[in-house]
Write a protein that binds this DNA or RNA. Structure first.
Length: 816
RNA sequence: GCCGAAGUGGCGGAACUGGCAGACGCGCGCGACUCAAAAUCGCGUUCCUUCGGGAGUGUGGGUUCGAUUCCCACCUUCGGCACCA
């Protein structure tokens, strides 16, 4: 009896051996092409999720494949360790965030090791280590020095539960709730640090050098939300300027009123005494609307007249100024010129409040327009009418001519507006990298000297649910001396957004021990940029924009080279619970990877995650389907062990040729599919290959040269997806350690070629027969054989072929 | 509402540039081994059928000798954005 396949007995041993032998340590080697393979670092939540396995182990298989192909592959790992959950745990369970975090890291390291992935542990980096956030702070100082960091008072989203400021990206849903705890968000005015990511908006829209998924590029494009138009200055009757942004300067003559956001700073001044109460009530209601859950879409326009008037700069018309909540303070200038004839929202507003509608554009095919009788706005471009000196300007020139006209008059200019906002990085939290600045009575905001970094977090802290940073309440921590005048001063008590830490971790992996800078330039020179980056698509608009911005800013300071940090990006889908729902503890549908590894072994879990799903899609965990790969691995196990000492019998030339052919066909497919992230067909090809080797065994071919070659190729091809069983069987077959240092077997297209092919014979597009012919058959011969085939004749009947189409090697279609 | 992706057996999924639809598995059925069961192995498994064949890749049309693949319209599901001026 052959020994049973027991993964539990072999996997841990090999993992330990590989690590002891430093098999996967990536060292600069100018003689080999480098490959930086990066997978998104996990957050230190405590447990690895089966989703991490789905993201990481197929990536590992591809990294291993590239390594066998001769690349010098770096596959590093680390931890995103700062952030709110650590503090929530601290508050909930009275455990220090540091302790919670580092305990979790320990467990996660064990779990990551159990994957059998080729992590280079010598490059591990943890973002909450002082040696790490030293450089996070240093990067902050570079941004500050180069005027990309600034402080401003601004209304920020505030989560009353987490007691912290949220970036606008962290506020989700129609009802504007906190990303993490789902508490409705409120507004609060605080002095905050921002990064000028908007300076890079245009460059961030350029993806030409990136091999990234279309969806991610589109998400980023929409997120940045670039639109071209004009900035136009209207003036109130008192002479105060009201700036508006419009994408349709050509409709300017049709602006019959203005609408300001309720929060607009000029509202107070514009409001006349008679309108005061009404305006005040409206503002109050609008603000409360953002405080309380916002009602589902109320299409009905609401608004109030301020009593004030402005002057349309192009025709000097006196137009009323209203306020309405459909104008947003957070987009554009917080004020619009309303052109009801050509904008549907403005039209609805005008009709409801009986304001003038003046058409100024005549779209093609429209004879004439009457503002009194129009039933909807006409947003199309067209010939300008009722537009003073520009009347008659055709659609193609309207936009540009108006802009020139505005510039000449000095009342406007061409402008680009973005939906993207500057990146708010301040967090009123303890567990993050302290912002390295000092506030001095005489010198103002003073950066901490670079040689004073890191500004370390104190360990002795007190938890207060006050909503302000615990650092603020530390008795001594914030007290310091001004780096410039040496007088007593106070430290900034806010910490940085953790997206700041994760914007550069791929650089820390280059040299995590390096202390003369954030990274060793020699390592940068060799390894960067990242060649492949894998992770979840949920990071499309945050992390992946921030890290690109970060890189471009550093490039402009001369810290890094190149325009983009990550050349190729691929996203995996999500593994859902067996019930098809998102896994969550409350639903009780969480699949624990430790448990699965205990049941089936790491190789089976790896292989199943590759085999059972389209990697880009993911899907529900299926506890039955994994049996398929479990059986496959057991079959490979017995096949190799039972035949390893077989004496070759009489060679069956046909079986031998077929096995050799399958060997090379599989080599081709597996290499292609690993390269293209098509992991499910990698495993199915290997299953087919194993089935054919087994058939050759059953035909008495064990021990023949072709058989030995096939088994060797099978193990080598299994090394990337299922590294442990491949290594074990490699050793038991008497081959030299380690299979993971073997080159990928060479592929011979001649051997992969078929001698005979099955030609499909169609009559009028319907399959009627299949005939076996030599692979190199001529088109004429194929046509002749097909037409002569018995089934074809039967279906053709008396009719003569009108046309015969030959697709070489595939089919013949006879049209009658 | 707008933008995007996807709809293939009982299930997960295959099908490279328009050329055998359902590879590889799961499940199920039958059989072998067994006193029996599990495990393992073998065979079968899209549907309908008068056993000739017919239908079939969300629905309806189109292009083509030929469409899961290309085009048009629609339906459903999922994701993103949501009064963006």
């Amino acid at each position: 009896m052959t020994e049973r396949y027991q993964p539990g007995q072999i996997e841990k041993q090999w993992q330990d051996r590989w690590e002891k032998d430093q098999l996967y340590e990536a060292v600069i080697d100018p003689d080999r092409p480098k490959f930086y393979f990066l997978t998104m670092l996990p957050y230190t939540s405590g447990d690895m999720h089966i989703g991490h396995w789905f993201a990481m182990t197929p990536s590992d298989a591809r990294a291993r494949f590239l390594r066998m192909k001769g690349y010098n592959v770096m596959y590093p790992i680390g931890f995103d360790a700062f952030g709110l959950p650590a503090e929530n745990a601290a508050i909930d369970r009275n455990i220090h965030p540091k302790e919670w975090t580092y305990k979790n890291i320990e467990n996660m390291q064990r779990q990551l090791r159990s994957m059998g992935a080729m992590w280079d542990w010598s490059r591990e980096a943890v973002s909450s280590d002082p040696e790490y956030y030293h450089w996070t702070q240093w990067f902050f100082l570079q941004l500050l020095k180069n005027d990309l960091a600034y402080r401003k008072m601004s209304p920020v989203d505030w989560c009353p539960h987490c007691n912290t400021t949220l970036a606008r990206e962290q506020v989700i849903g129609d009802n504007r709730v906190c990303e993490r705890c789902k508490t409705p968000v409120i507004k609060k005015n605080l002095e905050q640090w921002f990064f000028r990511i908007t300076n890079y908006a245009d460059e961030l829209l350029d993806f030409s050098s990136l091999d990234w998924p279309e969806t991610v590029k589109l998400l980023q494009t929409n997120w940045i939300g670039r639109s071209e138009g004009a900035r136009v200055i209207f003036k109130t009757e008192a002479g105060d300027p009201i700036e508006v942004f419009t994408t349709r300067p050509d409709t300017l003559w049709g602006a019959t009123f203005m609408v300001l956001a309720p929060e607009h700073p000029l509202v107070e001044k514009l409001t006349t005494p008679e309108q005061y109460d009404q305006v005040h009530d409206y503002i109050h209601a609008a603000t409360r609307q953002t405080d309380i859950e916002r009602e589902a879409l109320d299409k009905e326009k609401t608004g109030v007249f301020t009593g004030g008037y402005a002057v349309n700069p192009v025709n000097d018309e006196r137009i009323p100024v209203w306020i309405a909540d459909y104008v947003l303070m957070t987009y554009g200038t917080g004020a619009i010129m309303a052109v009801p004839a050509h904008d549907q929202r403005d039209f609805e507003f005008a009709r409801k409040f009986e304001l003038d509608v003046v058409p100024v554009i005549l779209p093609e095919g429209v004879e004439s327009l009457d503002g009194q009788t129009m039933t909807e706005a006409l947003p199309e471009y067209g010939e300008m009418i009722n537009s003073g000196v520009l009347t008659g300007t055709p659609a193609t020139e309207a936009f540009e001519k108006t802009n020139i006209y505005l510039e000449e008059k000095g009342s406007g200019t061409f402008a680009i507006n973005y939906r993207l906002h500057d990146w708010l990085i301040s967090r009123q939290r303890y567990w993050g990298a302290p912002i390295p600045v000092v506030y001095c009575q005489t010198c103002g905001i003073v950066p901490v000297q670079e040689d004073e970094l890191p500004v370390e977090l104190p360990d002795d802290i007190e938890w207060r649910p006050t909503g302000e940073s615990p650092l603020k309440f530390h008795p001594t921590w914030k007290n310091t001396n001004c780096p410039e005048c040496d007088e007593p001063a106070v430290r900034e008590t806010d910490t940085m957004d953790t997206f700041m830490c994760s914007s550069w971790y791929h650089l820390r992996y280059l040299s995590p021990e390096y202390d003369k800078g954030a990274f060793d330039p020699k390592e940068f020179e060799y390894w960067m940029p990242v060649d492949t980056y894998t992770g979840g698509v949920e990071h499309a608009t945050m992390h992946l924009i921030y890290t690109r911005f970060f890189h471009k800013a550093l490039r402009d300071f001369g810290v890094v080279k190149g325009d983009e940090p990550m050349l190729q990006l691929r996203n995996q889908g999500q593994i859902l619970g067996p019930d098809g729902q998102r896994m969550s503890k409350s639903r009780g549908n969480v699949i624990d990877p430790d448990e699965q590894v205990g049941l089936y072994g790491a190789d089976a879990v790896r292989a199943y995650l590759m085999f059972g799903y389209r990697w880009s899609d993911g899907g529900a965990w299926n506890p039955e389907n994994i049996q398929g790969v479990v059986r496959w691995l057991s079959r490979v196990w017995t096949l190799v062990l039972e035949t390893r000492n077989a004496k070759p019998g009489k060679v069956n030339a046909e079986v031998e040729r077929a096995l050799l052919r399958k060997t090379h066909q599989t080599l081709k497919q597996v290499a292609h599919d690993l390269n293209h992230f098509e992991f499910n067909t990698v495993i199915s090809a290997l299953m087919e290959f194993n089935n054919q080797i087994a058939a050759a065994r059953d035909a008495g071919q064990a021990g023949t040269e072709a058989f030995e070659q096939a088994v060797e190729a099978l193990l080598l091809m299994m090394a990337p997806p299922t590294p442990h069983i491949a290594e074990e069987l490699w050793a038991r077959a008497g081959k030299a350690y380690s299979i993971h240092n073997q080159p990928w077997p060479s592929f011979d297209p001649e051997l992969a070629k078929e001698d005979e092919v099955i030609l499909v014979v169609q009559v009028n597009g319907k399959v009627r027969d299949r005939i076996s012919v030599p692979a190199d058959i001529s088109d004429d011969k194929a046509r002749e054989l097909a037409v002569a085939s018995e089934a074809a004749q039967r279906f053709m009947g008396e009719k003569e072929p009108r046309e015969v189409i030959v697709v070489p090697g595939r089919l013949v279609n006879i049209v009658v």
